[in-house]
Nucleic acid binder design. Sequence first.
DNA 1: GCAAAAGTGTTGTGACTACACCCATGG
DNA 2: CCATGGGTGTAGTCACAACACTTTTGC
Lengths: 230, 230
Amino acid sequence: MESNMNNIERPVLAVDVVIFGIIKDSLTVALNQRDSSPFKGALALPGVAVRMDETLEVAARRALAQKAGWPVDIIDEIMLDQLATFDALYRDSRGRTVSVAYMGIVPESFIYSEKTIMKPFDEIPRGSLPFDHNLILETAHNRLKGKMRYTNIARKFLSESFRIEELQNVYEAIFKRSINRANFRNKLLKINMIEQVKVLTRAVGKKGGRPPHLYRFKRQEIETVDRDFI
Amino acid sequence: MESNMNNIERPVLAVDVVIFGIIKDSLTVALNQRDSSPFKGALALPGVAVRMDETLEVAARRALAQKAGWPVDIIDEIMLDQLATFDALYRDSRGRTVSVAYMGIVPESFIYSEKTIMKPFDEIPRGSLPFDHNLILETAHNRLKGKMRYTNIARKFLSESFRIEELQNVYEAIFKRSINRANFRNKLLKINMIEQVKVLTRAVGKKGGRPPHLYRFKRQEIETVDRDFI
DNA sequence: GCAAAAGTGTTGTGACTACACCCATGG
DNA sequence: CCATGGGTGTAGTCACAACACTTTTGC
């Protein structure tokens, strides 16, 4: 914080947004095609420069509206987490730009716009995105995995109620390993993270069998599952 | 990221730095007296506005040199971690300023400057710091506690080799609870975080007794102690 | 020989893993 | 009557906490 706030040349401040979702048991990322240079036509994370009178989070939502073409009422439902700030001197060829990255999660029921594609995370090779967007995406992925370990953030991938198998799929898609069904269920119930909803679902286009139970998260808030180191 | 990078009014970008240390078994924070308005004379976190040609981390080190008055060779030894970016619209009365906060740790052997005091964390009441510096400090404290749980960041509070009791004091000061000595030792050795250095220390001004063994961290790097959620 | 500091051992509890088997129900 | 999607139970291993006791060595 400096006394001097006059018109010295300053870095431009921007935001970039990483939106994750699970589609068909795979982790996916919202990307949009750039409509101007540099990297015109390339797939990139939605982002905008921050205006004088808006917070970073408001700017991030504006990026989702203007760049990704998402409806405002849906954007309002998404919780955005500040990720990190990226500041390499030449990260943007147009001039010194510092970008604050945000991360959000949408459920599979989300309606996509024509301007956005949800691309499977595993099909985005390193170096394939413009600017430092691969670095931002990697940071977001690590943060996502971290938050999955000690919060109930997984709920944001699903709708209000869900089959327990769907929830397990979320964990398996993100951690890329299979989890024992019985132990998964026992643990989440024991720590009181989820509870059973009374009704059973109707058939979901499956052949036959017992209709699955529905569950929901007991708390809305992202709650820390605290662990002591020692 | 926007095509338009001309001279529209943009938020000013700044950095603020939280430096932690342990002094006499208490967590302390580096604060310096502001020499200009607003809040002239108040204790605050060191911070500067970011220049066009420097990274955020370089700006953070410059804040420690210019505002806290620390010698450059010591500043170079400190590892700085980016914490979060603070962007409330009216956080600075002089105009729209977005500040990226950094966090660092210094060992007790560090030489302080006259411009800085290391103030005990518990003696900094909420609301006592200018701007949103209490919020920044709280965020830094939470991050510190988090990192203590799954990295070997504690090493930065100590010099290269240390008595095992000193290390335990670091944990006890930060988590504010007492830890069983035997279990503490057994765990840190079992997970291979620390190892014994062959020599014993000379007396440390104590009355008598067996001279303590010295230990050191086995890895320099901050290494994640991974834990699975399920 | 006593204080300081370290080191060892024991026991109970609770968590996690793997696996095996039982239950309910719609087509 | 069987596929589907649960739901229960048990045994082994491991981690952690509490606590007690032993060892080393300088003054």
